[in-house]
Every structure is written in C-alpha cells, then in structure tokens.
Design a binder for these strands. Structure first.
Length: 638
RNA sequence: GCUGGCGUAGCUCAGCUGGCAGAGCACCUCCUUGGUAAGGAGGAGGUCGUGGGUUCAAAUCCCAUCGCCAGCUCCA
C-alpha cells in the first residue's frame, strides 16, 4: 500500500502503483481536470508517475503560476518535434521555459526564415491535434550517449558526457523522442494555446566562442484568451517603444553621421529633461548636497590612480595625446569629485560632504548592444559622491536610500525592487573590507525596514552596492537608483583621502557613489515608455495649446498664451490656417495635456474652452480658473 | 563583436518573376475663416544606405561594406 500525505496534512492510502492522476481523481473531479504535474517528496513528476510506499504528494494545477513552466517546457519539446518533422537533420540543444514562454536552441542545416516559423507553428498545431501521449523511459547514461550519438544529436551527447547521473530519462511523444528530465504534460493535446514567435541567434551555452545556434522562441498559455492578452501586451509595448515615441513626439534623435549611441535631445525632449533637472537640483540643495561641475576629459594618469584604466579599460574610449600627454574622455565622474574634495583639508565637522553633478560620461559599448536611449555611448549620470566618516556611513546610506525612494515616487514608481549586490569576480580591495561594507549595506537595508534580494557577485569592482529597480506601467523592471560603496578610491594606494578627526588626527573617510536615476537618457526612455508618451502636466513639454477657431481669434489666443506663460506655464498657440478639428487632432497626437479652444464666444467672455488630451471636455472657464487648475496639477505632479 | 532580418522622399511604407521611381502624411503656394481627432486645389522633394560585379538594361540578381532591428543570463 502507498501512504500518501497531502499538503493539508491528511493521509490517504492507495494500492502501490496508483498514478498521481488517479490520486487526483479520487480526491475530486475538478482537481483531476486541472492537474498538470505532481510533486512527490519535493520532486516534480508526471501525472502518470506511480506512487509506492510513504510519500508526500502535492498536485500542481493550472491555477498555480508554476504550472505554466511545465506547460511551456512541454511546448518546447513539441516545437522541437515540429522542427524535426520539417527539418530532420536539425540538432537539438536545450529548451527551457522562460518568463512568458519558452525557447529551444537548435542547430538546423539552414537558419530559419519567417516562413519557416509559420510552417513550424502550423506543424506544432498538428502535433497538438494528434494528442500523442508523452511517455517517459529511463536509460543508463552510457546507453543514452550511445543512442544520441546514433541519432547525431551532438549537443545531447556533449551534455550527457558531462553529467554524473547513472540513469537519465527520455520522453517519447508520437514520432519524437528527446532527452529530458521532465516532467511533461500527459499528452500533446493538453496544450490549449501555443504560438511560435521568432527565431534569433544564440551561442551554444551563451559563450561567443561557441557556435551560434538558432533560438526559436514561443509562448504558451492555459487559454486562448491568455495568449491573446499576451500578444496584445507585446503590441502595447511596441506602441510605447521610446524610439518610436521619440520620433512621433519629436523628443530626440540619433545620427549615423555623428555616431551610434550618441543622443540628440530635441527641444521637446530637452524641455522634459530640463524640468527633471530643475527638480533634481532643488531636491539636492534641500538635502544638503553641494553642486559641482567637472571636465569631460582628464589626463590618463587620474584613471591609472583610480584603477579604472585597469578594471574598466575595455569600456573606455581610446587615448588622445595632448602636448604629448595622454588624455581620456571620462567614463566616470568620481575622480573629478575626489579632486574637489582633496583640494583642501577637511574637518570631521564638514562630513558628510555630498558633491552632486549631472556628469556626462562616455563609455565604449559594442555596436550590437546599442539600443535607442536605453543603451548608449554618451550619457549623463545624476551623480553624487558622498564623503563620510565610518561612524555615520550607515545612517547616510539610509538617507540616500530614502531620497531615491522619494525621487522615484515623483514619477509614479511606487513598486520598487531592491537588490544588494556583493563582490564580483573582477574586483579590488581586501576581503575584510568587502565583508565589512557588505554588512554595512545589509544593516542599512534591514534598519530601513525594506525587503531586498541579494545579487551574489553583482557588485562594482570597487565595492558592494544597493540597486533599486522600478516596475513600469507594463510590469517591466528597470534598474535606476544605485548606491555603491567604495573603499578603494579613498585608500592610500589610490587617492589617499583624509579628514581631521575629533582627536586632531587624520583619518580616512568612506566614500559612497550614488545615482537616483542612473543614466538620465535611460531614465528618460523608461519614463517615455512608462507614460506611453503621455507625460503628466508637470513634465509635459507643452502643457497647453491655444487653438483659435478663425484668424480673427488669433490675437486673443496670443493674449491667453501670454497670461499663462507669465504664470510660468509652457503654452503654444496653433495659429495655422487649419480647421479646429485638425489642430485638436495634432495636439492630441502630441499628447498635449490641455487644448484651449477660443472662438467668438470665448473672446467676448474673456474665457477658454478646455479639452483634455483624453478627449474629455471640461467646459468653458475664465483664464484665471484654468491657471489655478493647471497650477494645482503641476504642483501635485499628477 | 557574432547570427538572422531590414535599409526606397523629412516620416510611414508600396514597387523587388530585371524595362521611364510611387502613395499617404509632413513641407511650400493659392482658395477656404471653418466650434472639438485629418477642408480643397496645385507644387516642390529621392544618384532607391555605400562601393563593386552580372546584364543591352539593376531599386530589383550577385559580392563586399556601413547602419538599423531582434537575440546572444535563464543549462535536458
């Protein structure tokens, strides 16, 4: 007899050899219908797994999110089956589930074309319709290698050669058998909705020294509706692509003639940036930061001292000789801020000393990774370096962390993910320093009472860090704020920083690098996609457009605009020889928050007819009333 | 960088079994003075990314090159 303990602690008995599915059936019809896989003694198993002896059993149903992984994993195999039917000489590598879908890396004779993708998708649907049962069998590893070698599945042979398991499992579904740990859905017909999306290149094992394989991506869901919803979400993300919106809304451009990854901010984009910068400066002054500015190139020597030349070389632009002395375009702002700190002797009373700058830096990124404003070669960091006594470093880190949370909140980012990143492989400094500072950051987070995850090995080469990622309106995560500890640059081997302590002796300060937005370009791209281009009034480059109905109303339109500009608002007049509907359409497409239509009636009554970009009509009101309304919205950053 | 796809007017794109380079929007001129998402007419605008080749003839076919786009962490 098998004694089965269920998650609620209840125990049931079955004859040995009863399958997980049969157990589910004995509990309830619905459970059996929704069952996807079982978990026996913490190990995922197929529904036809036979239970014997004392076991703990959990049944994973479609309602549980992890069931999607198993669905998608099964789909990866079905996709491979479809590919082998169409292209029999394809060699298979690996096919895991990923967020929202799955992929299978394979090595076909010829790369897949878009038409192939459609064929593969159609073939997959046939496999689903055939409803092949997915059957598991095991082989000793050596026999498995033999089998895969015969089938010329070189990648499987390579993987099998590296494993140490005595036995490995295969799954067969119809005319297709593949090495797989499982578990799988019971049959190919159990897949309700699946679609092959695209093919791209991917290196075998992600290593560029290895052969480039073809990676086929697909997505799968428990219902057609979920699949549709997902495809719709992809469409929505495409519509919000900052590169597309950047063009449509005339925000920025990148020019081949000038170079990839170098951003030109157009007047409308630049206005948004300007508003953000003004807010940033004001907030920093409020919090006791000191504003500085530093040069864009520096003698190579400074980067030798800082260690960048050594640890960061491949990301720095080449050397240029100026009067026989080598210079570099700056990849970092820290050395400049450090030189300002070092320009005189400091007392412990002055610390923490917080030097802040919108520092533009240039880093050599490989051409293939450039991506609109998200990944560029020249960008501006909203940078600050804080020189602090060892005693108050933890307090200061909490302070910075709170600042970051407040700042991101202004842009509607309330859902934050916090990461503590520890020592990477390529790093400088003593182990004891790393341990001490990692503990300081950890304490700061614990004391601030926030939940965080640890990213092992994700730190900068000079110290551990705290990263803050925001979740945008489409649920995607973006890295923004960073608080990085640095015990390297202040050290005697580097810049040898000091302050005079209470006892009159020189001591070494700690240093914290921090950025709230990270790269202004990147943050701007994230914001554009987050808002879908409909920037809130406080950020919008044009806050209102005055639309005169006919030429005779132009003069009044200008006087309305002048009044509003006088109150500090950004207002345009659309005096073109076009119909009202045309002007409204264009202002709406530019996502201007308000349109103020003025015609004969408004001129006579000294009023404006207010329309929101959503199309909502707010009616006719005095200019002063609109000024209040917009003023309130801007102040509240709604 | 690597693999695949794509480069045609300022923008979005059609043309690509080789045979006179197109549309819509935007721009300019004129008409129209119109009340809430495109008023009408006309005009100007491109050595089809660049270089080479095949051909009587190349936007179209071939080669090279540059740029853009997707992907290159997720281990059966």
């Amino acid at each position: 007899m098998a004694k089965v303990t269920l998650p609620d602690g209840k125990t049931r008995e079955y004859p040995d050899g009863t399958t997980v599915l049969q157990v589910a059936e004995s509990i309830g019809k619905k459970l059996a219908k929704d069952a996807v896989i079982g978990v026996v003694n913490e190990k995922p198993v197929d529904l036809f797994f036979k239970v014997t002896g004392d076991v703990k059993l959990k049944i994973v149903t479609r309602q549980q999110p992890e069931s999607l992984d198993h669905l998608r994993h099964t789909c990866a195999h079905i996709m491979a089956q479809a590919v082998l039917r169409l292209f029999p000489n394809t060699k298979l590598a690996i096919g895991p589930p990923i967020e929202d879908g799955f992929y299978y890396d394979m090595d076909p004779e010829k790369p897949f074309t878009p038409e192939d993708i459609e064929k593969i998708d159609a073939e997959m649907q046939k496999v689903l319709a055939s409803n092949f049962p997915c059957e598991r069998f095991e082989l000793p590893r050596t026999e498995a290698i033999e089998r895969c070698r015969k089938e010329k599945q070189d990648y499987k042979v390579e993987m099998l050669g590296e494993w140490t398991d005595e036995k490995v499992s295969f799954y067969t579904q119809g005319d297709f058998t593949d090495l797989c740990r499982g578990p799988h859905l019971p049959s190919t017909g159990a897949v309700p909705a699946v679609k092959v999306l695209k093919a791209t290149g991917a290196y075998w094992r992600g290593d560029e020294k290895n052969k480039m394989l073809q990676r086929l991506y697909g997505t799968a869901w428990w219902s057609k509706e979920d699949l549709e919803k997902y495809l719709h979400r992809i469409e929505e993300a495409k519509k919000r692509d900052h590169r597309k919106l950047g063009k449509e809304l005339d925000l920025f451009s990148i020019h081949e003639e000038i170079g990839g990854g170098l951003v030109h901010w157009h007047p409308r984009g630049s206005m948004i940036r300007h508003v953000m910068e003004q807010e940033w400066y004001a907030d920093h002054v409020k919090r006791g930061y000191l504003l500085v500015n530093t040069p864009h190139i520096a003698s190579e020597e400074i980067y030798r001292i800082s260690g960048h030349l050594e640890a960061y070389k491949e990301l720095m632009f080449g050397s240029m000789l100026i009067e026989e002395r080598p210079f570099r375009v700056k990849p970092m702002n820290c050395p400049g801020h450090i030189m300002i700190y070092k320009s005189k002797l400091h007392s412990y009373r002055e610390l923490p000393m917080r030097l802040a700058e919108f520092g533009t830096v240039y880093r050599f990124e490989k051409s293939g990774v450039l991506h609109g404003m998200l990944r560029v070669r020249g960008f501006t960091i909203d940078d600050a370096h804080i020189f602090v006594t060892p005693q108050s470093v933890e307090k200061e880190i909490i302070e910075v962390f709170n600042f970051a949370v407040e700042w991101l909140g202004k842009f509607g980012f309330k859902d934050l993910a916090i990461y503590l990143s520890t020592r990477p492989e390529k790093s400088v400094g003593a182990t004891s320093d790393w341990e001490k500072t990692e503990a300081a950051l950890r304490n700061a987070l614990v004391n601030a009472g926030v939940k965080f995850q640890v990213d092992e090995g994700g730190g900068a080469f000079y110290g551990p860090k705290i990263d803050v990622k925001v979740r945008d309106s489409l649920g995607r995560e973006w890295q923004c704020s960073t608080v990085q500890f640095d015990f390297n640059l202040p050290s005697s081997g580097r810049f040898d920083l000091s302050f005079v302590g209470e006892d009159g002796n020189r001591q070494q300060p700690y240093m914290v690098h921090r950025a709230l937005m990270g790269s202004v370009e990147r943050f701007f791209a994230v914001l554009t996609e987050h808002y879908g281009g409909a920037f809130p009034a406080w950020l919008s480059p044009t806050q209102a457009t005055v639309i005169p109905i006919a030429d005779s109303h132009i003069e009044y339109a200008h006087s309305v605009a002048a009044q509003l500009r006088g109150a500090g608002f950004r207002v345009d007049v659309d005096a073109r020889n076009e119909r009202t509907g045309h002007k409204i359409r264009e202002a709406t497409l530019l996502k201007t928050p308000y349109m103020l239509v003025v015609g004969e009636k408004e001129v006579a009554a000294k009023q404006v007819a207010v329309r929101e970009r959503s199309g909502k009509d707010l009616g006719v009101m005095d200019v002063a009333r609109f000024r209040e309304l917009l003023g309130e919205e801007v102040r509240a950053k709604k």
